[in-house]
């Protein structure tokens, strides 16, 4: 518990001082947007045990809706962000309702298929600007007083949005609802046999995850003043899986770390190695899956546990091998 509190404090300090450390602010803002996206994704993968392979749908949809609301309708940024986020939530409800009754690979396939369908809808629709995307989205004045064209203001607004989303997820994980989610992740038939309608719990988790993924996409649009097909492409769905696995799925801070590592690599490598960056990402993915499943934060936590806590009895470990999950 206290370790989590310490983590929170460090995170807030890091977020507050980072722009004064000569780090490119756009990079930081991109990092927070993806960190939020990955945390939202982790709620499903890490805490409910559902692998969605179509999360770009929510990120991208919110990105377009917010972009359109700001650029064409001229709405203030807070309303534009809200519009994109709510849209993603509704979309999450629709997609979730269709996918949630399937398990494992079928669930992943359905989410992927739905996201691809939506991708082609965006490609066809006029308002998205097709291959060019929605460019020059205005930032405007938040709540009529915060001028988002000022980079410092924008940075702190983005960071505050991240913290809000991050806290929402933290709370969800550590709520009575979160306990049920974890029980579903651990042993779904058992949760059912205890009287939980698991489909309803999964659906709510899916909607929360989609909504906050949308918030991340909407915020990204304000930062880059751009909504494009990249946001809705399945590469994006893959990237968020990678960020979450690399940082540590099922850990509170892992996705944040994973997102920053990936964004950093992309930034550093893009102009040096060009499209080889994709190969490097693929390589990292393989290493993650083969060598350290728990991800960066997960491995660190395991390391600390081994250093500071009594070792687990061998007999208990051996006994564990015998019973596989039902």
């Amino acid at each position: 518990m206290s370790r989590t509190a310490l983590g929170f404090i460090l995170l807030i300090i890091a977020g507050v001082v980072a722009p004064w450390l000569n780090i490119y602010p756009t990079f930081l803002m991109k990092g927070w947007c993806f960190a939020l996206f990955a945390c939202a994704f982790n709620l499903l993968l890490g805490y409910t045990g559902l692998l969605s392979f179509g999360h770009a749908a929510f990120f991208g949809a919110a990105s377009y809706i917010t972009g359109h609301a700001l650029k064409v309708w001229g709405l203030p940024p807070e309303i534009g962000l809200l519009a994109g986020t709510v849209f993603a939530g509704v979309l999450g409800y629709l997609f979730g309702s269709l996918a949630i009754r399937r398990a494992g690979i079928y669930f992943a396939m359905i989410t992927l298929a739905l996201a691809q369908m939506l991708y082609f809808v965006w490609l066809q629709m006029k308002f998205t600007g097709g291959e060019d995307g929605l460019q020059g989205v205005p930032r405007g004045m938040m709540f009529g007083v915060i001028d988002l064209t000022n980079n410092v203001n924008l940075y702190y607004v983005v960071f505050a949005i991240f913290l809000f989303g991050f806290f929402m997820i933290y709370r969800t994980i550590h709520s009575p609802f979160g306990q049920v989610l974890k029980s579903i992740r651990e042993n779904e038939p058992r949760s059912i046999s205890l009287g939980y309608d698991v489909a309803k719990y999964k659906l709510l988790a899916f909607v929360i995850s989609a909504t906050l993924s949308g918030l991340a996409g909407a915020t990204k649009t304000v930062v880059f003043q751009l909504a494009s097909l990249t946001d809705a492409h399945w590469h994006m769905s893959g990237e968020v899986v990678l960020m979450t696995l690399l940082g540590g799925m099922g850990t509170v801070f892992g996705p944040v770390v994973g997102a920053f590592v990936i964004v950093t690599l992309q930034n550093e490598l893009a102009d040096k190695v060009g499209s080889w960056v994709q190969v490097i990402m693929g390589f990292i993915f393989v290493i993650c899956v083969l060598a350290f499943r728990r991800g960066i934060v997960g491995e660190l936590m395991a390391l600390f546990r081994n250093l500071y806590q009594r070792p687990v009895g061998l007999s208990a470990r051996q006994a564990d091998v015998k019973d596989t999950k039902a």
């Binding site: 709370r171 969800t172 550590h174 709520s175 009575p176 609802f177 719990y201």
Partner: peptide, 12 residues
């Protein structure tokens, strides 16, 4: 309260 995602698990 099993759907209450806004509530702390301390309530348990």
């Amino acid at each position: 309260t099993s759907f209450h995602f806004w509530k702390s698990q301390k309530s348990l």
